[in-house]
Amino acid sequence: MTTTEYQVTGMTCGHCEMSVREEVEQIDGVETIVVSAQDGTLAVTGPGEINDALVLAAVEEAGYSAVRAR
């Protein structure tokens, strides 16, 4: 399993978390998603490498912006 973490800006509440989760869970290969509006983080776990471009596009589709955490 591989977990990739992202910093997400603009989330302020549980509804924000739900919006991000709903978009990211549509990506093939994603098994677990942990979103925290309070911390501004998103962790995505899957069996292999997570496609950053797809995750970033999904977050943008939800109305937020993100960068991969280092």
Rank of each mutant, 00 (worst) to 15 (best):
E5W: 00
L42V: 02
T12P: 10
T9R: 07
V20G: 02
V20S: 04
A58L: 15
P47K: 14
E60P: 04
A58G: 12
E5I: 06
V20A: 04
D28F: 03
D39P: 09
C13I: 10
T41H: 06
D28A: 15
G48W: 04
V20T: 05
V24N: 08
V20I: 07
A58R: 11
P47I: 07
V24F: 04
I27T: 07
V44Y: 05
Q7V: 01
G14Q: 10
A37W: 08
Q7H: 02
L42D: 00
G14T: 15
M1S: 11
Q7T: 00
G14Y: 12
Y6V: 04
H15V: 02
R70P: 15
G48V: 14
N51Q: 11
Y64L: 08
Q38E: 15
V44T: 08
T45H: 10
E31I: 07
S19W: 07
L54P: 06
E61T: 09
Y6Q: 09
E49N: 12
E17I: 04
G63M: 12
T3K: 03
E5V: 01
Y64Q: 02
Y6M: 05
D52T: 04
I33P: 05
G40I: 09
T41C: 06
A57E: 15
T45W: 05
T2M: 11
V55T: 05
V34D: 15
L56T: 00
A58Q: 06
E5P: 08
I50F: 06
A37K: 05
M11C: 11
G29K: 07
T45S: 13
D39W: 07
V44R: 10
A66I: 00
E60H: 11
L42N: 07
T2D: 03
M1F: 11
H15E: 07
M18C: 09
C16G: 13
V35M: 01
D28M: 14
S65E: 13
A62S: 11
Y64D: 03
N51L: 14
S19Q: 15
N51T: 10
V44E: 06
D28I: 15
V30Q: 07
A43S: 14
V35S: 15
E61M: 08
E23A: 06
T41Y: 01
H15C: 13
P47C: 05
E49L: 04
E17K: 01
V44Q: 05
R70H: 07
A57T: 13
G40Y: 00
A43G: 00
A66H: 00
R21G: 10
M18W: 09
V55H: 00
G40E: 03
Y6R: 12
Y6S: 02
G63F: 12
E31T: 13
E60I: 02
G63T: 15
E49P: 13
S65I: 08
V35Q: 09
D28L: 10
A62T: 13
T3E: 13
A37N: 08
D39I: 11
Q7G: 00
L42H: 03
G63I: 11
V44I: 12
A62H: 08
Y64M: 10
T9K: 14
V34G: 14
E31R: 13
I27K: 04
